[in-house]
Design a protein around this nucleic acid. Structure first.
Length: 313
DNA sequence: CGCCAAGAGGTTATTGCCGC
DNA sequence: GCGGCAATAACCTCTTGGCG
């Protein structure tokens, strides 16, 4: 079964919704009972081998009880989910290596829905009822727990922000579970970070973007040098991308304006420009390499000089 | 060791269908 | 015929693992 997906949006104002923290991890279904114990990724791949510390969930609601849970695998660092830390775990399939990593940096499973119980398909029940059944199971152990649910949206968002979480998910209490569907019964509200960056060039596009811009190369100033900060290739409209190219064309130069470029910037051709254009970009977080994760173009800033653009926080 | 594919996440654009 | 919704396709970033 494929998990139900949320659409991005704003916090609902009307009654009839409940709110959860948005966990920055990987969506995972847990199946126990007659079929044994299986962890399945969003796209239906078996990821049981990656997280041996979760095998203890096999008896979570009683020995060999038939159960299908929906939830998120997260890697907690200082009590906060860290996607970077999880990336060291989620591709490992060799059992020795997985066990070694599980001992050093265990993951946590946060259950937020129950889809099957003792052979009965629960997806047709309203979320309110499924949540009652989930809470009745008492999912709580060394490496697993039940994701808390709240009824005050703004307060949940405030608490999430205060604890450095990435957002909130609102769920309509009357909604049924629709496997694989992206529905407006679940709405995710992300606290994107945003700041300005200087455009230092662009990578050439492919496919539908052939001959034009694929993504913009971004930088910030540190000690008078333009330091590479990653790329942004989404958030544009088609027309916006073409007007961006017209705007950058007059600034094209032969040499990179960046003080240094990481060696692994992909092999696609790059056109460099003088660092004159400032753009606003929304993103999830800085990676350990000091680059942007999930960057999305928001607009051109004409009210800020390039030299003023520095890395914020 | 370098390159490429896969898989996690995201986005916009396009197309097809339904109801009015 | 048109607008809205849903599904699909095609882009993007970043990391790991496998292969030659």
């Amino acid at each position: 079964m494929q998990p139900m997906l949320a659409t991005a949006g704003r916090l609902p104002a009307e009654p009839g919704w409940a709110y959860e923290f948005k966990w920055d991890g990987v969506r995972t279904l847990v199946e126990t009972g007659g079929v044994g114990f299986t962890l399945t990724s969003r796209l239906g791949n078996d990821v049981t081998a990656a997280y041996p510390e979760l095998a203890g969930m096999a008896g979570v609601a009683g020995p060999a009880r038939d159960l299908l849970l929906d939830g998120e695998v997260v890697s907690l660092v200082d009590g906060r989910p860290s996607f970077s830390a999880l990336q060291n775990r989620m591709h490992v399939r060799k059992s020795m290596e997985a066990r070694r990593l599980a001992a050093v940096a265990p993951v946590t499973y946060l259950a937020f829905d129950v889809l099957r119980l003792d052979g009965a398909d629960l997806t047709g029940l309203p979320f309110r009822r499924r949540r009652e059944l989930l809470e009745g199971l008492g999912v709580a152990g060394a490496f697993w727990t039940t994701s808390p649910l709240f009824d005050d949206g703004p307060a949940t968002a405030e608490a999430a922000r205060a604890n450095g979480l990435e957002g909130v998910v609102a769920k309509r209490l009357s909604s049924v579970y629709r496997p694989g569907a992206r529905t407006t019964d679940w709405i995710k509200v992300r606290f994107g970070r945003r700041q300005e960056f200087v455009v230092g060039g662009w990578e050439h596009g492919e496919g539908g973007r052939a001959g034009g811009i694929g993504s913009l190369l971004l930088g910030v100033y540190e000690g008078g040098r333009l330091v590479y900060a990653g790329q942004v290739g989404t958030g544009f409209t088609g027309a916006g991308l073409r007007s961006m190219e017209r705007r950058l064309r007059p600034s094209v130069v032969d040499r990179s304006p960046f003080a240094a470029m990481p060696p692994d910037v992909r092999g696609r051709p790059i056109t460099w420009v003088r660092p004159e254009l400032v753009v606003e970009v929304e993103f999830a977080e800085w990676t350990v390499e000091g680059r942007l994760r999930f960057a999305s173009f928001q607009g051109i800033r004409t009210d800020k000089r390039p030299e003023e653009v520095v890395r914020e926080r």
